[in-house]
Design a protein around this nucleic acid. Sequence first.
DNA 1: ATTTACTCTATCGACTAACTAGAGTATCTA
DNA 2: TAGATACTCTAGTTAGTCGATAGAGTAAAT
Lengths: 148, 148
Amino acid sequence: MLSKKAKYAIKALLALADRDPDEPMRIADLARREQIPPKFLELILLGLRNQGILRSRKGKGGGYLLARDPKDIYLGQIVRMFDGPLAPVPCASQTAYVPCADCRSEAVCGVRLAMKEVRDATAKILDGTSLDSLRGQVARASLLDQSR
Amino acid sequence: MLSKKAKYAIKALLALADRDPDEPMRIADLARREQIPPKFLELILLGLRNQGILRSRKGKGGGYLLARDPKDIYLGQIVRMFDGPLAPVPCASQTAYVPCADCRSEAVCGVRLAMKEVRDATAKILDGTSLDSLRGQVARASLLDQSR
DNA sequence: ATTTACTCTATCGACTAACTAGAGTATCTA
DNA sequence: TAGATACTCTAGTTAGTCGATAGAGTAAAT
């Protein structure tokens, strides 16, 4: 399951990617626009900022902005940041490998083999989808939806 | 994350798939062989039985056996049974779709689009992998490992 | 009748997810 | 430079879930 934090983070980043890159957006406005509890969103944006994904400005006219081009922000980074490794089991993780105690032989573990496939497929998608490309997908889906 | 329940279930089923299909295996033996807390495994096997994946025999010489051919038992069913839908968000689920309250328009939701891709990729793998095919993969991996 | 082994319900502690509170700090503007 | 604005950060709280265990009950074999 994707946590609410990760979900809210993606929604907020997507909203920021849709704006003038030099125009900050306030927490309160983002929260209202995306239907996210304001204080909770605050926490999330702070995290993104401390990861270098967002920048912030204090005081009047302040708010949050993307720290990088939307082409260079990938979903994989966001999801890992809030929800940890993509692999369903630690022994199948690429970025955070941990062997499991109850495995007699790792090379012969069916669970690991199957879950490694899942993690690879997931990583391929999330590490291959940038904020910008997702924005494009949404736009195309929106057109299709209108023509229905 | 894959729950321990699902993980233990797969390990136990895989062990059963490796045996004479008419020779029951006791909870205690399975638990020892696969390093699973016996009482916990008991619960898991009971669940699998009530789903029609396992059969059981009571009394001396009793134990658990597969209720179907290992070719007809898919990981997708096991994982869904213990961990719920494969989709990272309910609105991207095929088998347990639930819309999300905070979505203004579902057709235009980036989170949903991306997560639907993840769920489709995961489902393709888990619904395409039977106990039997996984057994085969393990065997091949084991050979590769020995030749190293 | 006794042993064997599965069946089922209840419970428990630890942990985490989702959210909230509130005091603090930097920036702008009048 | 006072005061408003808006982010920063730490510390809760609450409800729910996960992993595991206990123990009484039932069915089958010998």
